[in-house]
Design a protein around this nucleic acid. Structure first.
Length: 237
DNA sequence: ACACGAGCACGATAGTCGGC
DNA sequence: GCCGACTATCGTGCTCGTGT
């Protein structure tokens, strides 16, 4: 039982967004107190819990155990990804609104923030703005299974920024192979730029020094490939 | 009537400490 | 060093009071 994004209220959508982003950033379940602080909704943890319970009933969130925080389910992550990727051509009126808001801003950062806010407001979903790449140094990598054939690849930067890509899984992929691939990449890319990490891991894979199973190796190669393909643009949420 | 916040009891986990 | 008991912390569900 999964509700489309547009069926969620503004408050539920904001809570869901904060849960997913916090989970992708930390890899750990998120509690109501944390959401209360991060969401900017000025709601108490008790109210956040009520919203989270609704989201859990909708199948978007789940708790690993009674006293743990909530984490997004596969359906929830799928909805989050779909919400970001269902990009449609804006109407002339919407385009004019975006350009008007951009023209009101001074610094680039403010313009980007305005563009993201405008897109988010128009689409009622998360907004994505693409900017030229910068020297992001990496801290951690994780793979989150979305289905039997797809996973969400997550890169965490040293500055706390998070980048996500949907990746097709090799046949025979399982949870342990996902973890093996993520651990392998995290151990080797820490402190490196994306380009440096790609060169290092590629060289290691070619030299047969990588202590990886075949399936995990394929996943690492696909992960490197997908970031190589669109590395010219860096999404900002 | 409804939404929200506060308070309470309870559960799970992690850290600490002492005994072996 | 290992194991079990204890404690602190964090999170939950539930109930009740309050404001609109």
């Amino acid at each position: 039982m999964t509700a489309p994004a547009h069926e969620l209220g503004d408050r539920a959508r904001e809570v869901f967004r904060v849960v997913v982003e916090s989970y992708l950033g930390s890899g750990t379940p998120v509690g109501s107190r944390t959401i209360s602080k991060l969401s900017g909704l000025n709601l108490s943890p008790a109210s956040i819990r009520n919203v989270m319970q609704d989201l859990e009933e909708l199948g978007l969130l789940a708790a690993p155990h009674t006293s743990a925080g909530r984490m997004p389910t596969e359906s929830g992550l799928r909805l989050f990804v779909d919400g970001m990727m269902q990009a449609a051509e804006p109407s002339a009126e919407e385009r004019a609104m975006i350009e008007r808001r951009l023209s009101e801003q001074g610094p680039v950062e403010d313009a980007l923030a305005a563009a993201t806010t405008a897109l988010s407001g128009l689409s009622a979903c998360a907004g994505i703005v693409l900017v030229p790449p910068r020297e992001l140094r990496l801290r951690q990598c994780a793979f989150v299974a979305l289905s039997a054939t797809q996973a969400l690849a997550v890169l965490v930067g040293e500055d706390g920024s998070v980048e996500n890509r949907v990746i097709d899984l090799p046949a025979g992929m399982n949870a342990s192979a996902l973890a093996e691939a993520a651990n392998y990449m995290s151990a080797r890319l820490s402190g490196l730029t994306l380009a440096e990490a790609q060169r290092r891991i590629t060289a290691e894979l070619r030299s047969e020094r990588a202590a990886l199973g075949d399936v995990s190796r394929m996943l690492v190669e696909r992960g490197l490939a997908i970031w190589s393909e669109d590395g010219a643009h860096r999404p900002v949420l």
